[in-house]
């Protein structure tokens, strides 16, 4: 999958410097093709998460377009965009992103159950992902029983569940120790190598080792740091 953002901006209402709004993202062009793992670094509040949400079809841009394989995300109605996201774009949000009424396994299977039913094949894939990420023993646990790191790994397994063409991960190694950071980054790298377009937002220097391209984002402006 190829994700192309053209001249996208995002402004939010806020009183600042005499204006009624501010730009979280200045006009930006961005492209991410299958097989590539790109990393965006930068200070907090620089607009990284805003860009990720815009690319994931989760935040309407103030101007510009976002296309996934020539499909303009924001020209689709909500129903089609949601179904498209479910099938093709996996977003790993920053922080905790569990559904607390479901077990770890159910959380991981959730994307496959949005538009279908739980199958033995899906359950097996969920089991493999849990084993790979070291949370297989927690399959029946509730999210409230998990540590921050375990919850992150659960979110990563969930994102991998539908084998999407594009993975957008916001601080995926934020709560992880070195060992698990390596496991997660290796998994993301393998996913990219298998043909997916992977974007990782991270402050972690370790992430850069796995990147094909590195960007820096500050004050709503994106610059290529290392290609």
């Amino acid at each position: 999958m190829k994700l192309i953002a053209t001249k996208i901006t995002k402004k939010f209402p806020r009183q600042r410097d005499g204006a009624n709004f501010f730009y979280a993202l200045h006009e930006t062009d961005f492209a991410l093709e299958g097989g590539c793992l790109a990393v965006i670094t930068g200070r907090s509040g620089g607009g990284k998460t805003t860009l990720l949400n815009l690319l994931g079809g989760l935040l309407q841009p103030s101007s510009g377009t976002v296309k996934a394989d020539d499909v303009d995300l924001y020209q689709m109605d909500d129903k089609r965009l949601s179904a498209f996201r479910n099938r093709h774009i996996a977003v790993i949000p920053q922080g905790v992103s569990a559904v607390y009424t479901l077990t770890v396994t159910e959380n991981i299977l959730l994307p496959t159950m949005m538009y279908g039913k739980r199958t033995a094949e899906n359950a097996q894939r969920a089991e493999e992902l849990m084993r790979h990420l070291g949370i297989a023993d927690l399959r029946d646990a509730m999210p409230s029983e998990l540590s921050g790191g375990e919850l992150r790994r659960m979110a990563i397994a969930r994102a991998m569940m539908t084998a999407p063409g594009c993975i957008l991960a916001d601080e995926p190694t934020g709560d992880l120790d070195d060992e698990n950071t390596a496991v997660v980054l290796k998994l993301l790298r393998e996913t990219a190598d298998a043909g997916a377009a992977v974007l990782v937002i991270s402050h972690d220097a370790e992430t850069l080792k796995y990147a094909d391209r590195v960007y820096r984002m500050d004050g709503g402006s994106l610059t290529v740091h290392h290609a």
């Binding site: 909500d78 949601s82 977003v91 992103s97 569990a98 559904v99 959730l110 949005m114 969930r158």
Partner: peptide
């Protein structure tokens, strides 16, 4: 709100 946002991220439509 966060729980609903997670469901949206995973592909739930507004109607869903």
């Amino acid at each position: 709100k966060k729980e609903f946002a997670v469901l949206r991220v995973l592909g739930a439509s507004r109607r869903m």
